[in-house]
C-alpha cells in the first residue's frame, strides 16, 4: 500500500459521493449516463465476486462492498426514484453498451492470465472498466453544457485511474516480481479516454467559467 494507491481509491470514492450528492441534493440526474452506471455495476460485480472467499484486507473488502452498494444506489435513483427518474436524459443516452460488453468478453476469453472462470471474469472487468466511461462522455458531448457536480464527478473519476498508474510505477520500482501488464495497458487506455475532457475541464477552471464542451 502506498500513497498513490490510497489517493486513487479516495478519489474514486469521492467521485461516487459527488455523484450521489448531485442526485440526492438536486433530485436530478440530468447529464448522467445510466448506461455508464450499469457498466460500472457490471465491472464491480464481476471483479469482486471473490469478496466472500478471498479475504485480502479489511480495506479492500470495505471498498468492494461500498462500490457495489453505491453504484446500485445510483442506478436505483435513476430508474426508480419518482422525482429523479423524470430528469434522466433518456433520449441522449443511447449508447449501445453491447458494443462494449461483447468485445471485452471476447478479449477476456483470448487474452487473460489464466484460463479459469474467475480469472476471465476478473480480466473482463478490467477491460470493461477501461471503456465504461464512453456512454457518459458521449452524453456530455451531446448535451454540451456540463453542470459543476457532473463535471467534478467525471474529473475525479478520470483522476482515480491516473493515480493508479503512479501506484503501478511505484510498485514496479519497489516490489520484485510485480508485473501486471493487462491492468497497466487497460489503465493507460482508461486514463487516455479522459485526456480531452481533462483539457476542457482545466481550461474552464483556469478561466473560472462554466464547463462547455465543443462539438
Amino acid at each position: 500500500m502506498n500513497i498513490f494507491r490510497v489517493s486513487a481509491d479516495i478519489l474514486h470514492l469521492l467521485s461516487i459521493l459527488v455523484l450521489l450528492l448531485k442526485i440526492h441534493a438536486t433530485k436530478s440526474c440530468a447529464g448522467i449516463s445510466l448506461k455508464t452506471q450499469e457498466l460500472y455495476l457490471a465491472v464491480f460485480v464481476t471483479r469482486y465476486l471473490d469478496l466472500f472467499w478471498n479475504f485480502h484486507s479489511l480495506y479492500n473488502s470495505v471498498f468492494k462492498v461500498v462500490y457495489i452498494a453505491t453504484s446500485s444506489m445510483i442506478i436505483w435513483y435513476m430508474k426508480r426514484h419518482r422525482g429523479v427518474k423524470q430528469t434522466y436524459d433518456k433520449d441522449h443516452d443511447t449508447f449501445r453498451y453491447l458494443f462494449l460488453i461483447v468485445p471485452c468478453a471476447v478479449l477476456a476469453l483470448i487474452v487473460n492470465g489464466r484460463f479459469s472462470l474467475f480469472e476471465i471474469l476478473w480480466t473482463f472487468s478490467i477491460y470493461l472498466e477501461a471503456v465504461a466511461i464512453l456512454p457518459q462522455l458521449v452524453l456530455l458531448q451531446r448535451t454540451k453544457n456540463v453542470d459543476n457536480l457532473t463535471g467534478n464527478y467525471v474529473f475525479l473519476l478520470g483522476l482515480y485511474r491516473a493515480f493508479y498508474i503512479l501506484n503501478w510505477i511505484y510498485r514496479y520500482a519497489t516490489e520484485p516480481h510485480y508485473s501486471a501488464w493487462i491492468v497497466w495497458l487497460s489503465g493507460l487506455v482508461q486514463t487516455g479516454l479522459y485526456l480531452d475532457f481533462f483539457y476542457y475541464y482545466l481550461q474552464a477552471w483556469k478561466q473560472s467559467k462554466k464547463l462547455q464542451l465543443p462539438s
Binding site: N54, N112, G113
Partner: peptide
C-alpha cells in the same frame, strides 16, 4: 503473468 499481481488492488 498478465494480472495476477494486481489481484490485491481494487
Amino acid at each position: 503473468e498478465g494480472g495476477a499481481a494486481a489481484h490485491d488492488e481494487l
